[in-house]
Simulated assay, not measured.
Amino acid sequence: MLEHTLETLARDADFRYYIKDGKGYFVPKDNTAEQIVLSSETGLLEVRRVDDESEEKQEKYRLKSLLIWKAAVDTRIKLDSIKVKGSFKVVEYEHRCPPR
């Protein structure tokens, strides 16, 4: 019931919502806030194209970089690599430490 209410509220206000670490976040769908520039000079390590199996058929990439603590869902990334250039929105992320 709560999830349905949150979905309705977000849709009516033209927002996107998500829950992370027990906290709810509402972000405008057209969020054009600050962009994080990601290039080899700022910590970009790898860019890999991912097949998009959704109906939207958008370009999707999986990135590997040094820690970008500001990255979160709906963060804007300005990608500047040899393979890909452009602005993208983060739809999923994971902060991970490599095994020792």
Rank of each mutant, 00 (worst) to 15 (best):
M1W: 04
M1D: 13
E7L: 05
E7I: 04
T8R: 01
T8F: 01
R11C: 01
D12G: 00
D12M: 00
D12C: 00
A13W: 00
D14V: 01
D14G: 00
D14W: 02
F15Y: 12
R16Y: 13
R16F: 04
Y17H: 00
Y18M: 02
I19E: 02
G22C: 09
K23R: 15
G24R: 05
Y25H: 01
Y25E: 01
T32N: 12
T32K: 03
A33T: 09
Q35W: 05
Q35G: 06
Q35N: 09
I36G: 03
I36T: 08
V37T: 12
V37N: 12
V37M: 01
S39T: 05
S40L: 04
S40K: 02
E41T: 04
E41D: 07
L45C: 04
R48T: 09
R48N: 15
R48I: 07
R48H: 07
R49E: 14
R49M: 10
V50T: 08
V50N: 08
V50F: 05
D51S: 14
D51Q: 11
E53V: 14
S54R: 07
E55Q: 01
E56V: 14
Q58A: 14
K60H: 11
K60F: 11
Y61L: 15
Y61D: 08
Y61I: 04
Y61T: 10
K64M: 11
S65H: 11
L66E: 12
I68R: 14
I68K: 15
K70L: 13
K70V: 09
K70P: 11
A71Y: 09
V73A: 06
D74G: 03
D74R: 08
T75F: 10
T75R: 15
T75L: 11
T75A: 13
I77R: 10
K78G: 05
L79G: 04
D80W: 03
D80K: 14
D80C: 12
S81I: 12
K83P: 05
V84E: 13
K85C: 05
K85H: 12
S87D: 15
F88Y: 15
F88K: 03
F88W: 06
K89Y: 10
V90G: 04
V90L: 08
V90S: 02
E92W: 02
E92M: 09
E92S: 14
Y93I: 15
E94K: 11
C97K: 12
C97A: 15
R100F: 04
